[in-house]
């Protein structure tokens, strides 16, 4: 996946859904992820995936301060745009 060509939100929704054992359709991307039971372990897994997929190292707090999929996607988009 290369920056700018992908839908970060779709990718992230899919990752989060997998970890939470949901289908992507079950995830309301505007709700805090903690509403779905996102714990610190899953947050670590997600941040490692973001690192692998986009080459971005996210400070761990980001997962907590932006706990909806939409919010986190916007941050990743922003960082990717910066990195261009």
């Amino acid at each position: 996946m290369t920056p700018g060509t992908t839908d970060v939100r779709t990718w992230l929704t899919e990752r989060v859904a997998t970890y939470l054992r949901r289908t992507p359709e079950e995830i309301d991307t505007s709700l805090p992820m903690t509403d779905y039971g996102l714990d610190s372990l899953t947050a670590l897994a997600v941040s490692a995936d973001i690192e692998d997929e986009f080459g971005l190292v996210l400070p761990p707090e980001i997962t907590w301060d932006n706990p909806s999929v939409d919010g986190l996607s916007r941050i990743i988009d922003g960082l990717l745009a910066e990195a261009k």
Partner: peptide, 11 residues
């Protein structure tokens, strides 16, 4: 829920 996730680290 957010408080417990943040401060204790469990869902």
């Amino acid at each position: 829920k957010l408080t417990v996730a943040r401060e204790i680290g469990v869902p």
